[in-house]
C-alpha cells in the first residue's frame, strides 16, 4: 500500500513537473511574439491614450497634463468635425463598392480559363502600385481643362468638369481612385472563398433547375457569408484610415471637403507639432473604427443567432 502511494506520489510529482515545463515551454515559444506585441502595439496604444491627456510639443518633446482639454478643443473644432463626416462619407462610398464590385468581379472570373487568369491579374495589378504612382496617374486624368476627363467632357460639349476642384465631386473622385486601386484584394479574397464552396451543391441545384440568381442567393452568398463580413470589416478598418490619396490628390480641399481624419491627425501632429491634440483625435478615430467594425460583426451575426 505504502509502495503504491509512493508510486502515485512520484507520478504526481512527475506530472506536475511536466505540466510546469510545458507551461513554461509554451510561454517561451510565444514570448518573442508577446514581447514584440507589448512593445510595438500595447505600449504605443497606452502611450497614445496618455498623450491624449497631455499638451505635448513634438519638436521640443515637452509635455504637460491638461486633462480633457484636447478632447474639449476637438469637440468645437469645425475642421475636425468636418473630417469625421468626410471620412464617414468616404467609407460609405468605398466599402459597399469593395464588397459588391469585388464579389461581382470574383464571380465573373471564378473559372479555370486563360482569359479569366489574365483578367484576374489585370484587376489585381493596381493593388501592387504605391499610392504615389496611383495618384500621379489619376491626377493626370483629373487635371483641370487638359486632363482626360475634362478633355472628354469638353469634347461632349459639357465644358471642363474640374472634378477635383468641385466640392460636391472631389471626395467621390478620390473614392473612385481608391476602388480602382484596391479592388484587387477583395476580389482575391472572394475568389478564394468561392473556390472553397463544394461543387456538388451547385450540381444538385442545377439538377433541380435552379436559376443562376437563385443559386447565387441561396448557395453562393450563404456559403461565403463569413468572407463577405471579413472583407467588409477589413475595408472599413482600411478606409477609415484613408490618407495618402487624399493628401496627394486634393490636400484636403476643395474647401476642406476631402480632409480625412488621418490627414487631420497628421497635420495636427507633424505640421502643428501638437502631438497631444493629434493623439486625442487618434483615440476618437480608434473608437469610431471599433464601433463600426463591431457593428458590422453584430449585424452579420444577428440573423444566424435569431
Amino acid at each position: 500500500m505504502t509502495t503504491l502511494v509512493g508510486v502515485d506520489a512520484a507520478r504526481g510529482r512527475r506530472a506536475a513537473r511536466a505540466g510546469w515545463w510545458s507551461r513554461w515551454a509554451g510561454l517561451a515559444f510565444v514570448a518573442p511574439f508577446l514581447v514584440l506585441y507589448l512593445w510595438l502595439m500595447i505600449y504605443p496604444l497606452v502611450s497614445g491614450v496618455i498623450m491624449s491627456f497631455q499638451y505635448k510639443d513634438l519638436l521640443s518633446g515637452t509635455s504637460e497634463f491638461v486633462g480633457f482639454w484636447n478632447y474639449e478643443d476637438l469637440s468645437i473644432d469645425p475642421i475636425f468635425i468636418g473630417s469625421i463626416f468626410n471620412t464617414l462619407r468616404f467609407v460609405i462610398l468605398t466599402v459597399p463598392a469593395f464588397v459588391v464590385l469585388g464579389l461581382l468581379i470574383a464571380l465573373a472570373l471564378n473559372r479555370p480559363t486563360r482569359g479569366a487568369a489574365i483578367m484576374r491579374t489585370l484587376f489585381f495589378g493596381p493593388h501592387v502600385l504605391s499610392v504615389t504612382v496611383v495618384t500621379l496617374i489619376w491626377k493626370t486624368v483629373y487635371l483641370p481643362n487638359v486632363g482626360m476627363i475634362d478633355a472628354g467632357s469638353t469634347a461632349l460639349g459639357l465644358g471642363p468638369l474640374s472634378i477635383l476642384l468641385n466640392p460636391d465631386w472631389a471626395l467621390a473622385a478620390v473614392a473612385l481612385v481608391t476602388v480602382w486601386w484596391s479592388i484587387g484584394l477583395p476580389m482575391m479574397l472572394f475568389l478564394a472563398a468561392l473556390q472553397q464552396v463544394p461543387q456538388d451543391i451547385y450540381e444538385a441545384a442545377r439538377l433541380d433547375s435552379a436559376s443562376p440568381l437563385r443559386i447565387l442567393w441561396t448557395i453562393t452568398i450563404p456559403s461565403i457569408s463569413k468572407m463577405i463580413v471579413l472583407v467588409a470589416v477589413i475595408e472599413v478598418v482600411l478606409q477609415f484610415q484613408v490618407f495618402g490619396q487624399v493628401n496627394l490628390l486634393t490636400g484636403g480641399g476643395p474647401n476642406n471637403t476631402t480632409r480625412s481624419m488621418v490627414m487631420f491627425i497628421y497635420q495636427a501632429g507633424f505640421q502643428q507639432w501638437q502631438a497631444g491634440y493629434a493623439a486625442a483625435a487618434s483615440q476618437i478615430l480608434f473608437a469610431i473604427m471599433l464601433v463600426a467594425a463591431g457593428l458590422q460583426f453584430w449585424v452579420s451575426r444577428k440573423p444566424a443567432e435569431s
Binding site: 484636403g252 480641399g253 476643395p254 474647401n255 476642406n256 505640421q271 502643428q272
Partner: peptide
C-alpha cells in the same frame, strides 16, 4: 500653418466655393 490655412480659405473664396 497660418500661411497655408489662410491660403486654403482664400482659394475657396476665389473659386466661388
Amino acid at each position: 500653418v497660418m500661411f497655408f490655412t489662410i491660403g486654403e480659405e482664400l482659394s475657396a473664396a476665389v473659386l466661388g466655393q
